[in-house]
Design a protein around this nucleic acid. Structure first.
Lengths: 108, 108
DNA sequence: CTTGTTTATCGTAAAATTACGATAAACCAT
DNA sequence: ATGGTTTATCGTAATTTTACGATAAACAAG
C-alpha cells in the first residue's frame, strides 16, 4: 500500500552497465577497496615484474597473507603473474586496468 | 639474506596518492565493491531524490539492511541524504563522485 | 492526543574476509 | 641426490561484513 513515490528529476550522470561486465567491475572495485591490496598495486606501479618476496619484504604482513592478497588481485584482473624458476614475477594487467579506467570514466 | 631483487623496468602508469586521500579513495572503492550497493547507486542515477522506501521496494532485501547499506555509501561519500518530513531523500554526491572519477582517471 | 508512516538503530546470527603458522611443491645450486 | 629458496595452499582463529527482526524516534494526518 505504501506508494510514496517522489517525482523523478533528470539523471545527473549515466551508469549503463549490467550483467557480466557489472560483475567484473564490482569485483575489481572490491579487490582494490582494501588498504593492503591498494598498497600492493602502488608498489607494482613502481616495481613492475618484481617477485612475491619483494612485496613480502615491503609489507608488514606474513608471506601467506601476501600470497592470498595477490590471488585476489589476480582473480579480479588487476595483476598477472609469470612463474620464473621458483619465483613468480607480478605485474599490472594493463589491459584490464585500461578497461576499468575507461568504464569508470564513462559511467559517472 | 634473501635479496633476490629483480631489475626494475620503467613504470607503466602513475599512482601518486597517499595518506588521507588514499584512505578516502579506498573507502569509496570498498563501498562500491558490493553488488547490492552498486545496484543502489545505479538506482539513484535514474531516481535522484528518491526515498529509502523506494529503494527498499526495488531491492530484494530487508529495510534494515538497505538502511545499513545507505549508511555505508553515505559515510564513503557516494551519496547524501536530506530528511524530508518522516522520509529521507537520497541523491548522488556529485562533488565526491567527480573527485573519484578524476582521481581514477589520473591514476592509472 | 492517537494512529499510521517512515526510517535509523540495536541486538544478534550467519557468512565472508583477513591473518597466521605449517606444510608441500617446484626449482636451483652444489 | 641433498640442501636451500621461493611461493602457493591448507587448516584455523579472529575479525568484519551482511542480513534480519524488533524497536524507537520523528513526523503527518485525523
Amino acid at each position: 500500500m505504501a506508494r510514496t513515490k517522489t517525482k523523478i528529476p533528470p539523471a545527473c550522470c549515466t551508469l549503463k552497465i549490467a550483467g557480466k561486465e557489472q560483475e567484473q567491475l564490482v569485483s575489481m572495485l572490491k579487490a582494490l577497496g582494501n588498504p593492503i591490496r591498494f598498497e600492493i598495486i602502488k608498489f607494482l606501479v613502481t616495481h613492475p615484474g618484481c617477485i612475491t618476496g619483494d612485496i613480502v619484504e615491503y609489507l608488514p604482513i606474513a608471506q601467506a597473507t601476501v600470497s592470498q592478497h595477490l590471488k585476489v588481485l589476480k582473480d579480479a584482473g588487476w595483476i598477472s603473474g609469470v612463474i620464473e624458476g621458483t619465483a613468480t614475477c607480478y605485474q599490472l594487467d594493463e589491459i584490464n586496468i585500461e578497461w576499468f579506467r575507461s568504464v569508470v570514466g564513462e559511467i559517472f
